[in-house]
Amino acid sequence: MFRPDDPLDPPSPVFDEPWQAQALALAAGLVRGGHITGSAWADTLGAELKNAEDRGAPDTLQTYYLAVLSALEALTEQAGISPDTRQIRRAEWEAAYLRTPHGKPVTL
């Protein structure tokens, strides 16, 4: 039951689109798995949000989640995963998604 005095129980969905939840889940998984530190995640996301503010981006959920993506990309590059490697993997996942029947799990 929604309680208006509880900030952890928001009255409406927190995410506009599923990819937003997935991006944050990915970041949480990287931290929990020890691949990045919580401090590195917080610092990198904070820097990306500051960059967006400096560019004059509006203070919206879209701006926030684009900063989340940028932070994830920056952290993967710091871990030695090049943009080219990331693009290749993205293309592999997209091809797998397109050949997977609806309702079935996507696998590489």
Rank of each mutant, 00 (worst) to 15 (best):
M1K: 10
M1T: 15
M1S: 05
F2S: 09
F2P: 13
R3H: 14
D6Y: 09
D6R: 11
L8R: 13
P10G: 07
P11F: 07
S12T: 08
P13Y: 04
F15H: 11
E17N: 11
P18E: 01
W19T: 03
W19H: 04
W19G: 07
Q20A: 00
Q20M: 11
Q20D: 05
A21P: 14
A21D: 08
A23H: 02
A27W: 00
A28F: 04
G29W: 04
G29S: 05
G29H: 03
L30N: 06
L30P: 07
R32A: 13
H35I: 15
T37W: 08
T37C: 09
G38P: 07
G38V: 02
A42I: 07
D43Y: 12
T44A: 03
G46M: 04
G46Y: 01
N51H: 13
A52E: 14
A52N: 11
E53T: 14
E53H: 07
D54G: 08
D54K: 12
D54M: 11
D54S: 10
P58H: 09
D59V: 10
Q62V: 15
Q62M: 08
Q62P: 03
T63C: 08
Y64P: 10
Y64W: 02
Y65L: 03
Y65D: 06
A67N: 04
V68A: 06
V68D: 01
T76W: 06
T76Y: 13
Q78M: 11
G80D: 05
I81E: 13
S82W: 03
P83V: 01
D84Y: 06
D84I: 10
D84R: 12
T85Y: 04
T85V: 10
R86L: 02
Q87D: 11
R89M: 14
A91V: 09
E92P: 10
E94P: 00
E94Y: 07
A95V: 08
A96Q: 01
Y97V: 00
Y97R: 02
Y97E: 00
L98H: 02
R99K: 13
T100M: 00
P101Q: 01
P101I: 00
H102E: 15
G103R: 08
K104P: 01
P105I: 06
T107R: 03
L108D: 11
L108S: 12
L108C: 04
L108V: 10
